[in-house]
């Protein structure tokens, strides 16, 4: 079943997070006016991203200088001979038509740039077709790439406070790491400013306090933390205050009797 929506309402970073954490496989189709884009994921990792339909075709490899026309013809013939299951990229590697590093580097850069451009879209329809895979002859990246650093890079390109405010409504919020953030941070390359901010995250300081301690503008700290937040590395929470007691609001469920709950359960079961 397809997931449909608009990136105005459910941002591309949010979608990439869903793909990553949900280990999703499928094709994400985006459109805005005359512009289109197509991204394919395999178990949560990006295998191909194109902004023009023709870039799904194998001759992209020739245009990128990765193969000659003759090499491509040979690879396509081999792919046809192999039949179901094989992909053009696998054939190219198996027959040593191009070095793996070169293929990986060029196709990864090409796909990353296609994705980064999409972060500038303020809106656009999306449709995610689950379990859809690229055509076997499509120029896919040999080793699918993690979307974590795509999210980080995408957030660096966000300059509108409106979107950031959706997730960080106030600089009085405290930033803290989620469980085992170190494991996830390993795949992400941080800028100097990002390192300065991450070094100050202690679960006690607010965004405003971090800005003060790092001598960064509050907006820049918000933008950087937005990236961490979207990548699922940190969370922002209200500074703990003893509000329930101060406001005289009892924690109702903590003092409810189990017998009462059991009575309600039995009644609803019997309805």
């Amino acid at each position: 079943m397809a997931l449909v929506g608009n990136i105005r309402d459910f941002g591309l970073s949010d979608f990439l997070y869903l793909v990553d954490r949900g280990d999703k496989t499928g094709g994400l189709y985006l459109s805005r006016g005359q512009e289109t884009a197509l991204l394919f994921f395999e178990r949560g990792k990006l295998v191909m991203a194109v902004r023009r339909p023709e870039d799904q075709q194998p001759d992209l490899l020739v245009r990128l200088g990765l193969l000659s026309e003759n090499q491509l013809a040979r690879a396509r013939a081999s792919l046809a001979a192999r039949g179901n299951g094989a992909t053009l990229t696998e054939v190219i590697l198996a027959e040593n038509l191009a070095p793996r590093e070169q293929l990986q580097g060029a196709l990864q850069s090409f796909s990353e740039e296609a994705v980064y451009g999409l972060f500038g879209w303020p809106e656009g329809e999306f449709r995610f077709e689950q379990n859809q895979r690229p055509d076997p002859a499509a120029p896919t990246i040999p080793s699918p790439i993690s979307v974590d650093h795509l999210i980080m890079e995408g957030s660096r390109r966000i300059d509108e406070m409106g979107r950031i405010k959706d997730r960080i409504p106030s600089t009085d919020l405290v930033v803290r790491f989620l469980d085992q953030p170190g494991v996830r941070i390993k795949g992400i390359k941080l800028s100097t400013e990002e390192w300065r901010v991450i070094a100050r995250i202690n679960g006690r300081d607010t965004l405003a306090e971090i800005a003060q301690k790092t001598n960064l503008k509050e907006f820049d700290v918000c933008r950087i933390v937005y990236g961490f937040l979207t990548a699922g590395l940190v969370e922002v929470v209200k500074k703990p205050v003893p509000m329930p007691l101060a406001r005289g609001v009892p924690a109702e469920t903590s003092r409810v009797k189990r017998s009462l709950v059991n009575r309600i359960i039995n009644r609803i079961k019997g309805m």
């Binding site: 469920t253 903590s254 409810v256 009797k257 189990r258 009462l260 309600i264 359960i265 609803i268």
Partner: peptide, 22 residues
């Protein structure tokens, strides 16, 4: 769907039950 709504309420009650006191 009444059965579906019942299921949601029961699941909530199980959460409350776990947090309740004897």
């Amino acid at each position: 769907d009444r059965e579906s709504v019942k299921n949601v309420l029961l699941e909530l009650l199980y959460v409350i039950q776990e947090r309740s006191e004897e």
